[in-house]
Nucleic acid binder design. Sequence first.
DNA 1: CTGTTAGCGCTTTCAT
DNA 2: ATGAAAGCGCTAACAG
Lengths: 341, 341
Amino acid sequence: MTKPVQTLKTIAQKLGVSTATISNAFSRPDQLSATLREKILAACAEVGYMGPNKAAQSLRKGSSGIIAVVLSDSLEYMVSDPVASQFLKGVATELERNKLNLLLFSGSAASLDSIADFVDGFICYGAPRNLALVEELKRARKRVLTVDFDLPERPSVNIDNEQAAYEVARRVLTPVSRATVLGLRLIDSDTSGPVGDTPMWDNESSIAHRRLDGYLRAAAEAGVSLSNQQIWHIPVSSQYFAEAAALSALQQQPRPDVLLCMSDLIALSAIRVALAQGLRIPQDVKIVGFDGIEEGVRYNPSLTSVWQFSDAKGRAAVQAFLADSDQKQWLPYEIRQGESC
Amino acid sequence: MTKPVQTLKTIAQKLGVSTATISNAFSRPDQLSATLREKILAACAEVGYMGPNKAAQSLRKGSSGIIAVVLSDSLEYMVSDPVASQFLKGVATELERNKLNLLLFSGSAASLDSIADFVDGFICYGAPRNLALVEELKRARKRVLTVDFDLPERPSVNIDNEQAAYEVARRVLTPVSRATVLGLRLIDSDTSGPVGDTPMWDNESSIAHRRLDGYLRAAAEAGVSLSNQQIWHIPVSSQYFAEAAALSALQQQPRPDVLLCMSDLIALSAIRVALAQGLRIPQDVKIVGFDGIEEGVRYNPSLTSVWQFSDAKGRAAVQAFLADSDQKQWLPYEIRQGESC
DNA sequence: CTGTTAGCGCTTTCAT
DNA sequence: ATGAAAGCGCTAACAG
């Protein structure tokens, strides 16, 4: 009952032609007569031969049509993040358009080894949590494109996080503002709380620090003091930690009246907490987010935020990956005013 | 500057041993002395040889360590669905535990061909939207496990949708209920509206029809009439269509006082619409969902729903895939009472 | 314990 | 326009 496995060779024997001719029939139509090609294709269809084995093809040609998307964190973590989801949506759409396949790879995996030989290259969304991967990416022999961070000599797609953070903060800060930053992964700590004296982490590459730089520039310019006591660290992007941080931030004396949040998810948690505390938004406390997610638009009050167009970013990443250029590309963003400030 | 590409052969020559020995050093430690192995591994590390090429290994051994997850719809679509995300999270976690990689594949792709030779098998989450894929899966020569639908002779993981729908509906229906079903993809139509005379679609396999069967059984048992005029079709799971359907369903005369929704996302949309109409929940209208998503728990009012434990379902799917059995497995579910009925 | 050898299934010169 | 032959990089028998 089980049909025998067909290969180029068995087909060639059956038809009395060489394997090269069968191969050409599938991959290089111009190398043989149309009639012969038709005949071969028909015969293959009949016996259920689906074309050259892709694994063998990949070994021979050195390319597979599979692109790895290396996430910054473990997969289980990323799928529930709306920003990452939008980005992946863009990537998936554009890869599909180019008949390429998508291999999702965890940024917390031990090594790229297990997939490096299968894929044609890597699109990296955020610096991988496991820094060993960064080293592997640096010396990878295949095309690497980074998003939201940079690698020497490699193309990248970014927004100007510092400038965007500056702009959104500049809008809301006045000389009398009491501002607090709710930041993501600023220091090496598993609990949320003010950064205080703990040395900052990973200063160069992380988008969190770029955004913080922007907030600080805006604060300085507005004449608002923003010490490390007013900069809160949240260890991972989860509702639990965000709400805990927002709660204790809002319990400071004097209570802050501006919350600069490093993501919309954090900002939404902050809104929930503020409302639960009986505070009015924006009269008692103004809240701004970062990223741009649909839920922020629907929320009551709606969120003021930096819109990143993550879907378009995903598409741009694929296009830049496919193009040959090694440019570092900057994408536009937009400040969207909501009711939260 | 660019280092030469290393292969088993070049390494073997360099060390003056055979290729088999190098291969064994990596893959079958028991085949050579520990000292020789150490020496080989050290030498490889020094010249930057990362171990056998995985593509060649895969061609030779016939397995790659990559598992395809075939989605029911296009990737861009699934990524924003919280139920699918939870499932993927479970799958990803369990694959990672087993050192396997995950290739996401769109259920709207034209054919499995482009990846079939690269992967060790397929985990299919819902019947692929492109039915041609179903045929390919039926005759695939690799392991196939289905989730939320079945294929002859293939293992599967499911919940009893009919029974679950029956149970949740049975709780809320009384002889005087005026019930309406908000269903997903029941007929072949791009607009939402009552099913009416349009012939039902795809009757056997779809979970939507199994759930409908459960609702109908509960209605019959409760003595509630539930005609095709009270069964609404929603073409795709999106807030837009769900709200449109909920709105017109609630504008019927007499107004329904029970909304049986085929997903939590639909139920949440229905709650929003009902509230916007000034209706009280559950006094004026009772709403039940299906699936179990976090947002439903947080919602005000919280949602009564069938909990599927999608994360555990994903893990179970991988375990069943890896086990050799061809069993069709039933997973538990749970009715969770909320404030919405 | 180590080496030789024959492929896995395919593509690609290079002849014919 | 078609075919023969040499690998792509590796593993698994089998011999030694």
